[in-house]
Simulated scan of single mutants.
Amino acid sequence: MLAARRAHSGGRSTRVWSPHPRGKHAPVAPRDFDELLDRAAERGAERCLAHFGLESGSAAKDIRELRDLLEAWRDARRNAWQTTVKVITTGILAALLVGAAIKLKLMGGAQ
């Protein structure tokens, strides 16, 4: 935190401090720290993929298939809602037409 403030305020070269195994802090150059973070992130991503069974070479294909499946599910859900609204709207309009026909005695209702 202090190193970040110094870097922005004075433009001086700074060092990032990392924990040392004996409880002390050892200076680490920002470039080395970035490399360390990149390696840690890559290892974490590999572990995560392995946890979900996607560590093989076909992981990209599997993820694409999962995305396609999710997109198909969303399309099906949207179509189900659209169909439900159409059925309800058609039912209401049909009921209004039948009611109007009865009211106008077009269907041979009570005379």
Rank of each mutant, 00 (worst) to 15 (best):
T84N: 08
M107E: 08
G44I: 10
A3R: 11
A76D: 03
W73Q: 02
W17D: 06
A95Y: 13
S58L: 11
A72Y: 01
E35P: 02
A4W: 13
D34G: 01
Q111W: 13
W81M: 05
F52G: 04
L70R: 02
G99N: 15
D68A: 05
R77M: 03
K103V: 00
C48L: 11
G109A: 03
L36T: 11
G109P: 00
L69R: 13
V16G: 00
I88R: 09
A3P: 12
I102P: 00
R12K: 02
L93S: 06
I102D: 07
A26C: 08
D68S: 10
I63C: 09
T89D: 15
R6A: 07
V98M: 10
D38S: 02
H8V: 08
E71I: 12
S13G: 02
D34C: 07
A3Q: 04
W73M: 14
M1N: 14
A29R: 04
A72E: 09
K103F: 03
D32L: 10
K86V: 15
P21W: 05
R43H: 02
A45Q: 15
E42I: 03
T14R: 01
A100D: 10
A59V: 03
D38W: 01
I92L: 11
A95H: 14
A100M: 12
A60F: 13
L54D: 05
R12T: 05
G53C: 04
R78A: 13
R78E: 14
E35Y: 06
A26I: 13
L2D: 12
P21H: 05
G108D: 05
S58C: 00
T84H: 04
E42D: 02
T90G: 08
A4L: 15
N79K: 01
R12C: 04
L49T: 12
K24E: 10
R77D: 14
L54E: 11
R74A: 05
I63H: 08
C48Q: 06
S58A: 11
A76F: 06
V16M: 01
F33K: 04
E71W: 10
G23Y: 08
L96M: 12
G91P: 03
Q82S: 08
R6I: 10
V85S: 00
W81G: 00
V98K: 08
R22W: 06
E35T: 09
R77Y: 01
R15E: 15
G44M: 06
P19N: 11
L97S: 09
I102V: 07
L66W: 08
G10S: 09
A7W: 13
A101W: 14
A95M: 03
D32W: 02
W17F: 12
H25M: 10
